[in-house]
Design a protein around this nucleic acid. Structure first.
Lengths: 150, 150
DNA sequence: GCCAGTATCGCGAGTCGTTCGCAATTTATA
DNA sequence: TATAAATTGCGAACGACTCGCGATACTGGC
């Protein structure tokens, strides 16, 4: 069950666009829906594939442009998860989580916790570094793969 | 003052190569020297530029091949610092440090601390996730830039 | 030290992810 | 509904990186 395309999604998307003088267009709506309905990080290509299930006429360049715009408006976030050299995208959210990238199965898990917040405080107090975004990528072996080949 | 090209560098490089049946060649030595003598992360292109100061005939493809080999032998480490979509390289070292990327001046600071080790322990005990490499990239504003434009 | 055998190199072409320029289209506003 | 500007689709271009192949240079055995 999931997700009502175009309901709460646009409730976030439309005002965010309009506030900065951007228009709500079909490609943007579809890209946003694709991002929102995904339960994991997507490459631009994967976003395009999902968009094309609904409307094959949306151009790949527009997908890229939409994603870049969303990032600029803090609606989405880009990360380089190092497996290949393609960017991966996800809807923006508080960055209180890690990415756990399994080297065996390639799966990317999210893990929420207080550690990022701890870290932010330490950086501010000890380094005077005002952390804006914290991107924590841990690669290793997930529990399933670890017990499969110890 | 700096660094004696080809002294302690090769003391690490040569046996590491030979142990796995690889040869110590001129391009590899120069790439290694370039990495070792840098005080920051370098793109492959930047490594090539430094190599070319010594020997302009070393091919870019060989630089890439050397870097890939060093990564495989755990002599070097690749990371995606998100500024553009080029990889950055540095000599391998224990990963008990963060990268602090300043959004204003672009400077990348390293910061060592016990937090990564803490994190590793938490991941193992709470997630059953066996962390192999921990890549922590924090973007924000360094102390100098933060006070320049608060 | 020289030779043989093979790892490695240089080169140029090819791939992949991403961006660009521009005419045609679609959107918000008057 | 008309208008003006933002946005699109398209195809070509770009930058980072990889590959295949014949030429070169390294290492171990003589």
């Amino acid at each position: 069950m999931a997700y009502h395309a175009g309901v709460d999604a646009e409730a976030t998307l439309e005002p965010a666009l309009q506030k900065r003088g951007h228009r709500l267009t079909r490609p943007r709506r579809l890209v946003w829906d694709a991002l929102r309905s995904a339960d994991r990080h997507l490459t631009a290509e994967q976003v395009a594939a999902r968009v094309h299930e609904v409307d094959p006429d949306v151009n790949l360049a527009s997908v890229y442009r939409s994603l870049a715009l969303f990032a600029e408006l803090d609606l989405a976030r880009e990360s380089h998860l190092g497996v290949d050299n393609a960017s991966r995208w996800e809807p923006a959210h508080p960055d209180d989580h890690f990415h756990l990238v399994c080297r065996s199965c390639g799966e990317v898990q999210h893990h929420a916790g207080d550690l990022v917040e701890q870290l932010r405080v330490q950086l501010r107090t000890r380094q005077g570094f005002d952390a804006d975004a914290i991107d924590l990528v841990v690669s290793g072996h997930c529990d399933r793969c670890a017990e499969a080949q110890p």
